[in-house]
Design a protein around this nucleic acid. Structure first.
Lengths: 364, 364
DNA sequence: TTGTAGGCTTGTTGCCGACAA
DNA sequence: TTGTCGGCAACAAGCCTACAA
């Protein structure tokens, strides 16, 4: 007799805190609205799978001539998730390709997607060697502590309190918050090292605290990207995964049935599910030509947004053989020198010369 | 400029120690010979993916009428692997479906597959609470220590030596082996707790030491199955994985090109790549009928093999709609009461009543 | 303002035999 | 024969201030 323990629920769908999810995902990540129409790019999905499996696509992947480079879909489900092991944020979406008839319906106003409204009362700090060593606690930046932590009772000597913060999995973490030292400073002492070792944080990773409207303290992490952490999956070969993504989309398109995808903002170079209205506006109502200036947004190390201007140097298919007439990375843009790019994954590579990238018209 | 560190090689193919791999995989696991012809069962592969993603197949998966329930293939590559995080053993195989013409060639003699010859000088112990606590070391069963560890110098008081053992990743682990206490016993002290915490072993997991012909000490682990450790992959939906496996096999069959699969003996209920000669012998040269006795092999907790006799109660298609004329689990066998089954994964579930299973004719 | 280091206290790890299952 | 415990010693964790960047 096989006994299933009552409390153990595998694959249970809980509602993650949206504010914390978006804060961990970064300011550039935006999820389409539930029920809206979106454009799905198999090419972009393919890029994400390639990034996740650490394997380029090679010639063994069959063509799916019946699968267009962009599918207009109804978004039936969006759920936010976080990896149980690493806390990495990702989203699950259920898409249903629309018939040409259904596509003709006029756009609804609320289809632009919910931009990631970063919370106001929050701070994000990249951990130092001292923060992560077993020797001491966490040094809280002064303005951050004053803005997002509840005020201390300064009649006590030294002023101290217990903070309780919840992470993405709704797990409580308790910290002793104390204001002491010469000069005086805010510190998290007792409880901090338990958190660091439980989350396996190292110097360079970031933690982020949010004080929300309900007077709750939320706690998220953003890992510095360590390239070697991407492992082979051992479940399915990367070729089969690529074929699976294409075949699943092709089958759903042929039968107008639903299919499910995962969007992993930190693994993927670009969003591959875009609000239809945003796509239509960019593709049908924007004139682009070689020589035009093109704006791009990047996330800085302090997780704010910076604009960079580039020049369009080419327009056309990225992969004319497999994906003719695709709007995926159809615009080639050159950016000028000394741009320090801090990509989403915190892997800040510095570009000291000119560099060119293939981007989408509808990218940010 | 993106710099790739020279030493860091991702996905490098090293030759794993075959003896240790087989010992960790268990006595029932057997890999087909390189270059031989094998039979591949998409159904079985599907079962493994379902077990790995913890998700049953549902109706969303399209049929692949062009894909037969068994594909005769040439085995172009077999490599043994171990998960970097968990040490879980798995194998990667490259298969090429054969044309009807190629299938007609006569069998070669060496196509029966290399059975997992368990090493003679080895022992396997399931860890106790004391073994895994931080309070002490590892208590070595006396006969085990005398059989597989190098002899101690009993002129010392107490007799002690340093043991160096290599794991599946060729990482060295050093232990102080001492013979002390009242009554006298063999213990591993210094170095043991580092190993336990590095491998994240808990009471119930097993360790296994081999003393091979080259006078090397090998060290493997077998985890007690903890069902909740199976996580959603967040790379590809389980539906897409199922479609991918079928589409990859169908594409390879249609074009007679190679495809790659992973075989995970501890996740999968059954082997789905079988030597052709074994398959042919069982399917074409064995008469079976309802009422006949049928032998099955099971792995015991001490990782030896036990035989159980059952009675065939049915013969026919497991899934007549999707997979007509399949030899995958086409035989229904009933086993009698009080069989204590210890499956490969150490999850020993006791069966106190009769139970029936669907098996393959060519199963062990 | 805040990262790191030195001093000092306290809690945990880890080696030992005793004892009992 | 071997699992667990109490004793004890060594060590690391963790709280504090000092100092300098």
């Amino acid at each position: 007799m096989i006994t299933i323990v009552g409390e153990l629920v595998i694959g249970e769908k809980r509602c993650l805190n949206s504010e914390l999810w978006h804060a961990c995902a970064g300011p550039l990540v935006c999820l389409p609205t539930l029920g809206s129409r979106v454009v799905y790019f198999p090419q972009g999905h393919s890029e994400q799978v390639a990034a996740s499996t650490n394997k380029e696509i090679d010639g063994h992947i069959p063509n799916y001539p019946s699968l267009p480079p962009q599918l207009i879909c109804q978004l039936h489900n969006v759920t936010m998730h976080a990896d149980v092991e690493t806390d990495e944020v990702y989203a699950q979406m259920t898409l249903q390709p629309l018939t040409p008839q259904e596509q003709k319906d006029t756009y609804l106003p609320a289809e632009m997607g919910i931009s990631s409204k970063q919370p106001t009362n929050y701070f994000c700090k990249t951990l130092t060697a001292s923060d992560t060593s077993t020797h001491g606690g966490f040094s809280v930046p002064r303005r951050a502590a004053e803005k997002v932590f509840p005020p201390l009772d300064f009649s006590q000597q030294p002023p101290a309190q217990e903070l309780i913060a919840r992470d993405l999995h709704d797990v409580e973490w308790k910290f002793r918050h104390i204001f002491r030292g010469q000069p005086k400073r805010h510190l998290l002492t007792t409880g901090w090292s338990v958190f660091v070792s439980a989350k396996r944080l190292v110097a360079g990773d970031s933690v982020l605290f949010i004080w929300n409207e309900k007077n709750q303290l939320l706690l998220g992490i953003r890992r510095a990207s360590r390239p070697q952490t991407v492992m082979p999956s051992s479940v399915l070969s990367s070729d089969s995964m690529h074929i699976g993504l294409l075949a699943a989309a092709a089958h759903a398109a042929a039968t107008n049935s639903r299919f499910t995808i995962f969007y992993n903002p930190r693994a993927s170079p670009s969003e591959f599910v875009i609000p239809l209205s945003k796509y239509a506006k960019a593709v049908y109502h924007t004139r682009v030509s070689v020589g035009m200036r093109f704006r791009m947004l990047f996330e800085t190390e302090e997780s704010s947004v910076r604009r960079y201007m580039g020049t369009i140097t080419g327009i056309g298919d990225l992969d004319p053989v497999r994906w003719p007439n695709s709007h995926w990375r159809s615009v080639k843009v050159r950016y000028s020198c000394y741009v320090i790019v801090s990509a989403l994954c915190n892997d800040h590579f510095s570009v000291t010369n000119d560099f060119s990238v293939y981007v989408m018209l509808f990218q940010h």
